[in-house]
């Protein structure tokens, strides 16, 4: 019984790790992704190039590849973070590319006439972006951004492949020692699925709430 209790504690800590990795990774991706999106739609060519190259590379590299490079590779060139921080950085860097594309696509769904009208009224680049384009674009960004969040959640599970004891890592660890491990995998799957589906549901409601009726 005491082993079960200690396992329960481990599982809760693992769940906490998975959730905090997801939230930190998503927050980082949101900040970096927004900066990249501004780079990509702005008028400065070298910055556009940085944005494009970043997105094309990070979108096409497998997350596990990035994790291994950062977790096992960076110490080889003398950069050492603790494991948790490294994984959080990786999640943020990787998903920033997807956030950037979600924002850029969202901006592109705003009819050109809106931006033209804003320009005709004499608004500057920042003003027309902030007061006319972005408020309308935000609406069509919700669903993609929720998808990125779910992506970060599911991607954070790869942390267990490089040794982080997140929810999946704990399940895998206990499974090595206990025959009922498979039940734990089912429970972990239920947790992941309910968070992902719950976020999808909330995203849908938010989207309907801010919908602009024309």
């Amino acid at each position: 019984m005491s082993t079960l209790a200690s396992y329960f504690g481990q599982i809760m800590v693992g769940l906490g790790t998975a959730l905090s990795l997801t939230v930190i990774g998503f927050a980082g991706a949101l900040v970096l992704g927004t900066i990249l999106a501004v780079f990509r739609i702005g008028p400065i060519t070298p910055l556009r190039l940085v944005g494009t190259v970043y997105v094309e590379v990070l979108r096409n590299i497998p997350l596990l590849c990035l994790l291994i490079l950062f977790v096992f590779g960076l110490p080889d060139i003398g950069i050492v973070f603790d494991l948790y921080t490294t994984v959080a950085i990786c999640l943020a860097l990787f998903n920033a590319a997807f956030v950037c594309e979600a924002i850029r696509t969202g901006i592109n769904t705003v009819p050109v006439g809106q931006a033209e009208a804003a320009r005709a009224l004499g608004l500057t680049f920042t003003q027309s972006l902030r007061t006319v384009v972005l408020p309308q674009a935000f609406q069509s960004m919700i669903q993609p951004l929720v998808n990125v969040f779910i992506g970060v959640l599911l991607g954070s599970s790869l942390a267990s492949a490089v040794g982080v004891m997140d929810l999946l890592g704990v399940a895998q660890f206990i499974n090595l020692h206990q025959a009922w491990g498979i039940g734990l995998f089912a429970a972990a799957a239920a947790v992941y699925a309910s968070i992902a589906l719950g976020m999808g549901f909330l995203g849908g409601r938010l989207e309907r709430k801010v919908a602009i009726s024309r």
Partner: peptide
């Protein structure tokens, strides 16, 4: 569809690598 879109692939891999062989 909803379930398998919402769980991590690695979890399923672990089930096949560690979970199912145990039973």
């Amino acid at each position: 569809v909803e379930f398998f879109r919402s769980i991590p692939l690695l979890l399923l891999v672990y089930v096949f690598v560690g979970g199912l062989p145990a039973i």
